[in-house]
Amino acid sequence: MATFKEFRNNVKPNWCPGCGDFSIQAAIQRAAANVGLEPEQLAVISGIGCSGRISGYINAYGLHGIHGRALPIAQGVKLANRELTVIASGGDGDGFAIGMGHTVHAIRRNLNITYIVMDNQIYGLTKGQTSPRSAEGFKTKSTPEGSIESTLSPLEIAMSAGATFVAQSFSSDLKGLTSLIEQGIKHEGFSLINVFSPCVTFNKINTYDWFKENIVSLEQFPDYDPSNRVAAMNRIMETNGMLTGLIYQNTTRKSYEDMISGFKPEGLAKQELAITEEQFNQLVAEFK
């Protein structure tokens, strides 16, 4: 069985020292090993941003695509070969601005993939513009007088879109994050894990210390029941979206793959391409 070290490659990340993304990379590698995957059984599909580089830093199959489209690519991979474990990953701009349409619909579709958002409340790669996750009043290069748009709540959106697995974590909490990713991989459906991942270069407000002060861990509520949708929504609102842990999980809804008529457990990519003459004649008969 592969250890987390086997999910490492020799590419040196070009992230700034101290960037939260390092720990997310480590957590994915650990979780992959912990659930018993071999590198070739994992496909990491990422978007564009500092965060998007992650697929290149993990020893597994991976595709670094275009800005905002990690999710549809990842869903295509999963549909083509459901035997693969598929992780989609990218930044808050990638998933909640340019790719927001895909995020909501991937949640609704509920394919069995795990989506890890590396949420730094800013655009890192393009050197510091506002993101949908930025706080109101947040000053950036593109909002010199402070952002005048309201902050988007991905957890509320996910809940209202019918998500079957909603979690949030903080990159400093390697143990908690690794565990959530493992649970996300094991979840039979779409799992969203939003991870606070401080950008030490461009975001001087939402820093490591700031998160430590503001985060509300679900560990504080021993009676919390993640299968209760109303309670989950309430708790998200009460904590202004700063909640971490497994917030909601619905284990009764089947994954998309399990609901497609005629879809086999074996990966489609491994199935026969050619059709028989008899099948061909049947198709043609309809047009006579």
């Binding site: 496909a43 599909i45 595709l63 695509g65 275009i66 489209r69 549809p72 690519i73 990842a74 869903q75 295509g76 991979v77 999963k78 549909l79 083509a80 070969n81 693969l84 489609l268 990519a269 491994k270």
Partner: peptide, 11 residues
Amino acid sequence: TMAIGANYAGV
């Protein structure tokens, strides 16, 4: 992009 992902994975 879904088609690209699926082609990449072999279908």
